[in-house]
């Protein structure tokens, strides 16, 4: 079984980082994993996307046209990629920047005001972690405790950010449950 998660948004929204944290968590759980950035002539404020492939056997193609899940942090990302998601997948929609739904009846829209929740947690920049936590809590793609541990490790050099980051994860988890 293989799952692909596409992270998409503006450059600067922490797309590559949240994807890396998911990849790390999957590795910690013993899965095969590949993290594939959309490297290209992108600019700050332009689009950024990144795909994480998680599997139980060596991963073949790193070229993924149809991911199982999508985390859309801005409207252009949803409009561009909603149609590519495989039926049965989850599309996380950042409600603060995206006033529309996926328009699909064969996927689950997980609508979360990730910017508001990040601000409540103490820092707007943690919006990527809110979205990641909500997605992980809903999909169960990796264990939530492992996710927490990987976030701690990622920010080990910046211990002052830990309370905000943990609060952001908790906000995301609750949003997915509610």
């Amino acid at each position: 079984m293989q799952s692909e998660v596409k992270f998409a948004g503006f450059g600067g929204q922490g797309i590559l980082l949240s994807a890396k944290i998911l990849a790390h968590a999957a590795l910690e759980e013993g899965h095969e994993v590949v993290w594939i950035p959309s490297y290209g002539p992108e600019m700050r404020g332009g689009t950024a996307y990144c795909t994480v492939v998680i599997g139980d056997r060596p991963i073949g193609s790193p070229i993924i046209k149809n991911p199982r899940h999508l985390i859309a942090m801005n409207r252009p990302s949803l409009e561009k990629f909603a149609a590519t998601v495989k039926p049965g997948g989850i599309i996380l929609i950042n409600a603060n920047l995206i006033p529309i739904g996926s328009g699909r009846d064969d996927v689950t829209d997980l609508v979360v005001p990730v910017n508001d929740l990040a601000a409540e947690a103490g820092n707007l920049r943690a919006a990527n972690l809110v979205a990641l936590a909500a997605f992980v809590a809903r999909s169960g793609i990796v264990g939530f405790d492992i996710l927490r541990r990987c976030v701690e490790e990622e920010f080990a050099a910046k211990p002052r950010t830990l309370p905000v980051n943990m609060a952001a994860l908790e906000k995301g988890r609750q949003a997915a449950a509610g």
Binding site: K20, A23, L27, E32, V33, V34, W35, I36, P37, Y39, P62
Partner: peptide, 9 residues
């Protein structure tokens, strides 16, 4: 380029 840019264990 992909071999250089992608992350794997």
């Amino acid at each position: 380029g992909l071999i250089g840019q992608m992350m794997e264990p």
